[in-house]
Write a protein that binds this DNA or RNA. Structure first.
Length: 332
DNA sequence: AAAACATGGCTAC
DNA sequence: TAGCCCTGTTTTG
């Protein structure tokens, strides 16, 4: 999945293309038929992302909560207005391939010059949208409208111009405003939602009183929102922190540093659509790293390969039922 | 063709 | 801790 950055990008796409518009909703697959019929014909009022969860508000206090889980994805097609705060128009957002390469990255050969952040070589991916100007993606000439349903589409949301198809989510349900609030209240702070200082204080206070390994705490959505397996490994390496250290034993300044670094990586991720964790490389080295799909991270997916800093073999172990990659020397 | 695997997280034991 | 959900891609036989 989609760690937090992808979900924020998706919410921005909904904000741009659905909020303020009347939406037709359907469940081609049938598993959300009841919910879709309740949404059908209502106007979308707001889109929010908190961590890995997205909330879409519709008229009459109806909220749609979506969690993509490991496999879920949104496909946007048609005419798409691109949020100016993100780098490029997207087709599929959320799903990625097995090598850890995000597909929600610049998708068009000519997108580079138009993107607001020119970093990142555009590469081929599923393309539903053609970028022609800075803010407008035009539907492919002669494309069917609405687009034919392909595969198991749990929910299709359609305006006159834009189509969003949801496949394979872990959660797709309607909530009352109170339920939305209760869901959000259970989540740890999100750097793009919470006040930066308040978020840092909350995160630091919780981590500093837990006996749990910091490698587990970073993945715990009740402690901090939006971090997944890739960002976990990379954040720990960037902090040169041993994943096994109990939260309460991590120096306070290090804990605060983790929060600020997450804040930074999330911001970069939202802007670029890529899980950029080697942002401190020089521009040349950065371009080289991005050009090679397997060279994007410090430790993630690098089991047995030499550490980029010290040459020690990167260790792979299970932590929290997920694969954890780390350098036993740099992160001693 | 079949199996394995993946950026998650819930629930039952 | 194991099983399950669910989809798409890659690897294996």
């Amino acid at each position: 999945m989609p760690e937090g950055h992808s979900v924020h990008r998706i919410a921005r796409q909904f904000d741009r293309n659905f909020v303020g518009r009347r939406v037709s909703a359907s469940s081609p697959q049938g598993r959300f038929a009841e919910g879709a019929s309740l949404l059908d014909g209502r106007e979308a009022l707001a889109a929010r992302a908190v961590g890995k969860q997205m909330f879409l508000e519709f008229e009459d206090d109806l909220w749609l909560r979506v969690h993509l889980g490991l496999y879920g994805a949104w496909d946007f097609s048609g005419e798409i207005l691109v949020d100016p705060t993100i780098a490029s128009a997207n087709g599929r957002m959320g799903q990625t391939n097995q090598r850890g390469t995000a597909l929600d990255e610049p998708v068009l050969d000519d997108a580079g010059e138009n993107s607001l952040t020119s970093i990142g070589a555009p590469r081929r991916a599923r393309v539903h949208v053609r970028m022609s100007e800075q803010t407008t993606g035009l539907a492919e000439e002669g494309a069917e409208w609405p687009p034919p349903v392909v595969g198991q589409v749990r929910l299709r949301l359609l305006t006159e111009l834009t189509c969003a198809d949801l496949r394979g989510p872990t959660a797709c349900q309607l909530q009352t405003p109170d339920e939305v609030q209760a869901t959000i209240d259970k989540l740890g702070p999100d750097p793009l939602v919470d006040d930066p200082t308040a978020g840092e204080e909350r995160f630091t206070a919780v981590v500093r009183r837990k006996p749990t390994a910091i490698g587990l705490l970073l993945m715990d959505q009740n402690v901090v929102s939006g971090i997944g397996n890739v960002y976990r490994a990379e954040l720990l390496f960037r902090a040169r922190l041993n994943p096994h250290i109990p939260g309460r034993d991590v120096p306070e300044e290090t804990v605060r540093g983790l929060w600020r670094d997450w804040s930074r990586l999330l911001t970069i991720g939202v802007e670029t659509g890529q899980m950029m964790t080697m942002d401190d490389l020089s521009p040349d080295r950065w371009r080289a790293a991005m050009a090679s799909r397997d060279d994007r991270h410090w430790v993630y997916h690098r089991a047995g390969l030499p550490c980029r800093v010290c040459g020690t073999a990167i260790v792979l172990e299970e932590m929290g039922a997920r694969k954890l990659y780390w350098c036993p020397s740099c992160q001693a």
